[in-house]
Every structure is written in structure tokens, then in C-alpha cells.
Design a protein around this nucleic acid. Structure first.
Lengths: 132, 132
DNA sequence: GCATAATGCTTGATCTATCAAGCAATTTGG
DNA sequence: CCAAATTGCTTGATAGATCAAGCATTATGC
């Protein structure tokens, strides 16, 4: 031991995160619902740890298991197949003959009436910025 | 899900061959086509080893990856989804669309991907000002 | 201000999926 | 009959998924 002062140095690991589409979707869904990592962990019934969620959202996991995706689909109230598709396990739904809702549509299902009204105004604003 | 951590120590499981529906289906498909394990390995372009196929058909693998199932679906000319279903990754009768949609949901179906992302961030903002 | 909780994150450890190599039986062909 | 090939199978090694703990920083309460 020796050298008095410093404790085990903590090296700053250079995370080579490769953000993919899935990680972005999962992060967006969680923040859109206003949930913390631990709240999601809890919502899955401890099936998915907050540690893992963090790695997932930061693109450090290449292939989360279908079980994990199933748990998260439940928490975020989005279709399991959609997450499977984002993870590259299934062909895009168009090529499988299926209609689909925008992911954002699922994020608003439990808004209050007041919030929904605000949201509609915001949508009008969004549209005013792009040609129809 | 994983197992990690140092929790109650788990004993090494003795290879209890537990043939499930998937293993039976895979074995039947292969013998029905008169193929050997190595021929199937070859047919997948070396994507799945004969060693693994053996374990798979004898129920020694709990959750083969979707990638493996995809390769085998190609070789045996059966639908990928069918094998996924046998493996327990998909529900047999997936019913979709039962939920009631918010009004606003109809207004976002034709947003661009960028706009949708903005929208999700806006939702996070909305939530941050009201309790759940 | 300070203790405490909450948040996102990193890391060490463990289990599982998966393959390369090898093995004992069986088949084939000369 | 025997060597070579084939077949199904087992096992050691490796990589990746996943979690329990713990850390740094920020928010919250007194």
C-alpha cells in the first residue's frame, strides 16, 4: 500500500457508445412518460434493472433479449412487435403487411384533458413551420 | 433476464434434457427433409453449428436467439414468425388495436420523424410540470 | 447550510448462447 | 475386412446479456 493519500484511482472509461435507433426510442419513451430509470425498473417488477436500462439507452447493449423488450413494451404501453422491430428482430411492419401508429401516439394516451389541449396547440405550432 | 450479482448461490444445473415444442419441431423438420446436422449447418452458411443444432434438438438450449431461428426458418422454408412463436417469443394469437385512441393521436400520424422527436421532448416537458 | 433522497451511471461478477474441436458409433466402398 | 467418411453428440472456451453494489452529482427538506 504505502503512498498515503489517494484511493484506488478511477479511470474514466472511454465508452464507445454506438447509439442505435432502439436506444433513442427507449430513452424518448421513458422521458416522455416522465419516468426515472428506477421507476421503470420497478414498473417491470424488477425484471429489468436500472443499470441495464442505462446501458440500453446509451447504446451499450447490442441485442437485448426479447424478454427485456417485452417487459419494456408493457411499461411504455407500446406494441411488443414495434420494439422487436427496432431491435432488428423483425422486419419493418410495412413489409409484413401491418398498419402502425406513431410511437408518440402511445405516449399521449394517458395525458389529462388539459395537457392534451396544450399538446394540440403545440402540434399546430409544429405544422406552421413546415409545408403541408 | 440475466443472473448476475452475488446473490444466493445457485447450484450448477445438471444437464436435464427437457425437450420442448421447439426442439421437437426442429428435429422433425430436419429429418423430414432428410438432412444431417452438418448439412443444415452448411445450409445456414455456417451461421449455426451442428453442435448447437444437436443441443437445440435435444432441448438443451433454453432460448435460441432470434438470429438462429431466422437462419433455420430459411433452411426449412417455414415462416420466421412460426419458429419465434414456438420459441415463446411471440404470442400465438397476437391481437392488436383494441385500445381507444386519444383525439390527439390522430393528429400526429403524419408527423415527420424529426417532428415526432420534438414532440416526445415536449411531452417530457409537459409531464415535468404536473404530478403523475 | 447540511443531511437525505433521488438520479444517471460504471463496474465486477455470473450465467447463457454459441462455436471449434474432438469422440464413439455407424455406414460406405473397395 | 478395413480405412475413410458420416453421424449424432459432449465439452472447453469465449463473448455477450444482465444484475447487485456502489459512486458522483443534483434536487429536496429542515
Amino acid at each position: 500500500m504505502g503512498h498515503g493519500g489517494k484511493r484506488p484511482r478511477r479511470k474514466r472509461s472511454e465508452f464507445v457508445s454506438q447509439p442505435n435507433e432502439l436506444s433513442a426510442v427507449l430513452a424518448d419513451l421513458r422521458t416522455a412518460k416522465g419516468l426515472s430509470l428506477r421507476e421503470v425498473e420497478e414498473a417491470t417488477g424488477k425484471a429489468v434493472s436500472n443499470a441495464y436500462l442505462s446501458q440500453l439507452e446509451n447504446g451499450r447493449i447490442q441485442k437485448p433479449s426479447p424478454n427485456v423488450l417485452h417487459s419494456l413494451a408493457g411499461v411504455y404501453a407500446v406494441p411488443y412487435e414495434t420494439l422487436m422491430e427496432k431491435a432488428g428482430y423483425l422486419l419493418p411492419s410495412e413489409e409484413r403487411g401491418g398498419r402502425r401508429r406513431r410511437l408518440a401516439a402511445f405516449a399521449i394516451d394517458d395525458l389529462s384533458a388539459e395537457e392534451e389541449e396544450e399538446l394540440l396547440k403545440y402540434l399546430a405550432f409544429l405544422r406552421s413551420r413546415s409545408p403541408s
